[in-house]
Design a protein around this nucleic acid. Structure first.
Length: 474
RNA sequence: GGCGACGUAGCCAAGAGGUAAGGCAGGGGUCUGCAAAACCCCUAUUCCCCGGUUCGAAUCCGGGCGUCGCCUCCA
């Protein structure tokens, strides 16, 4: 049974699907007015891990994440840069998608954009107006919060006074707690036609409209950063319940925020650590692992040296994998407790993930599994072969969530087209070492290094390892 | 002021009534021409503080202290 912490109930609950065997996931995506930072990578990586786990557990997953490609900030920023809103949004959506690919995110089935869903959004608002949940004032349309009886149930802000912003509202709303569904366009702003005149949608309505359009009338898992709980998700609940007369989602899943030092990483604070910049110094896989090394709900205080630590840790995993990937299934399993442990690994790993997607614990399990395996492999024989194969199998299984193994065929000496030449050179160096011609041996080592190969002299002979592309020192 | 989360080794971080996972760093060792890598072992009598409940508390309750997030665009 898969359990997940539901922000609505503040408890772990078993996952339930509306349609047998199918889970629908809607994650609130980014507003592409600036370069994505590591805080945006977290929900993407977390939901990627969640999705992969659910799929392994046999669910068919339908996963949608939106782009808010028109909003106040986008308009403001595009004016500053002398670009159109569309150009600015496209630029950052493109780089975002590239970052996601580098983080080995399995793409959502759709990345719907607000500007592609205007008709549905307008219809949605019109329905809320018709049903008496919303009202128009001078070309703006507002949602009447007092018409939503359960308002505040997600965030715990129930009293009307608690929902009032500290900032004074300068709009014509009937009540300060009411929020905009449609904003009249001011001169120079991008606009769309509507029954209330030209304008653009408010921030919250897009998710209700797009989610219903793409997922049907029910979302099994609805996600985003914990900073979206109020007002965004609270308002989304109000809109959808008013429109459909039923809850928007069974379970709300919110990831903790990435902070820089002690303060939240935020575009408006300008303290975001750009993913593009980070990728110049670190393998994206290191960042992915780092983001999965803590539980998804914990706050994460970003420090770059954490990446150095996980790079080191990851090299142990990848190094072991390089050494076991040659093992094929053995013809029989020796009777040994180590074999039993290795056979149990997958079931234990999966059950750790079942418990609220505890990637931190699952990752710990990988390191635990790795311990003591290498001496058995090095000892060889039937046991060594079986252990080697099962280790390979287990790392491959963990990799389905973590994606920490080299993609594609790992570059090893044997898989290189020039392997004959490389092996020949290695043999020459071994000969030189045997003859104590160390200057000659070291010169050969330097040649390998210059071509991107590190020679590691193991008890079983020399081994080639690729020199890291991202060799950052912090 | 209101709502919510958190405080575990040098650092990071799991654990949420049954006697402290894992990673990094550090120490010791094996291997080694050197270097690198790898491997093995060790490193919290104790979980912010003070009370309480319990046979038993890092875990539950009450009260402090401290930190962060939301209440305004935010992943």
């Amino acid at each position: 049974m898969i359990q997940v912490f539901n922000t609505l109930s503040r408890h772990k609950e078993p996952i339930r699907s509306q349609t047998e065997g199918v889970l629908t996931i809607y994650v609130c995506g980014v507003t592409p007015y600036d370069d994505a930072h590591i805080g945006h990578a977290r929900p993407a990586v977390v939901w990627d891990a969640i999705k992969r786990h659910l799929q392994r557990r046999g669910y068919a997953v339908w996963h949608v994440q939106n782009f808010t490609d028109v909003d106040d900030r986008l308009i403001e920023r595009s004016g500053d840069l002398g670009l159109s809103v569309g150009e600015l949004a496209q630029r950052h959506m493109t780089s975002y998608l590239s970052y996601m690919q580098q983080l080995r995110i399995d793409p959502p089935h759709a990345y719907p954009r607000v500007t592609d869903n205007m008709a549905g959004i307008v219809d949605y608002i019109a329905d809320l107006v018709a049903k008496g949940y919303a009202y128009e004032r001078a070309g703006d349309v507002y949602f009447r919060v007092s018409s939503s009886p359960g308002y505040g149930k997600l965030s715990g802000r129930t009293g009307a006074e608690q929902t009032v912003s500290r900032l004074e509202s300068r709009t014509a709303k009937d009540n300060v707690a009411d929020f905009a569904l449609w904003k009249a366009a001011r001169p120079g702003e991008p606009f769309w036609e509507s029954p209330w005149g030209v304008g653009r949608p408010g921030w919250h309505i897009e998710c209700s409209a797009i989610a219903e359009d793409m997922l049907g009338e029910h979302i099994d898992l609805h996600g985003g950063g914990i900073d979206l709980v109020f007002p965004h998700h609270e308002n989304e609940i109000a809109q959808t319940e008013a429109h459909l007369g039923r809850p928007v989602a069974t379970i709300f899943v919110h990831n903790g925020l990435v902070t820089l030092g002690d303060v939240k990483m935020s575009k408006s604070l300008g303290n975001g650590v750009s993913l593009g910049e980070l990728f110049e110094r670190w393998d994206p896989v290191v960042i992915r692992t780092y983001l999965l090394s803590a539980h998804y709900r914990s706050p994460l205080a970003f420090e770059e040296r954490r990446l150095g630590e996980w790079k080191t840790a990851l090299e142990r995993i990848q190094g072991l994998y390089r050494d076991v990937e040659r093992f094929e299934p053995p013809s029989g399993l020796p009777h040994d407790p180590a074999i039993v442990d290795l056979l149990n690994f997958e079931a234990e790993f999966l059950s750790l993930m079942d418990d609220d997607f505890n990637t931190a614990k699952a990752l710990a399990k990988v390191f635990e599994m790795m311990r003591s395996v290498r001496p058995l492999i090095d000892a060889g024989g039937a046991l060594g072969h079986a252990v080697g194969f099962l280790t390979r199998k287990n790392l491959t299984q963990a990799n389905e969530i973590f994606q920490f193994l080299p993609a594609g065929t790992p570059p090893t000496a044997s898989s290189e087209g020039s392997s004959g030449l490389l092996q020949g050179l290695l043999a020459v160096r071994e000969q030189a070492r045997a003859e104590h011609a160390f200057r000659w041996a070291d010169a050969i080592r330097d040649v390998f290094m210059a071509h991107g190969w590190k020679i590691e002299d193991t008890p079983a002979g020399p081994r080639l390892a690729p020199v890291e592309e991202h060799d950052a020192t912090v």
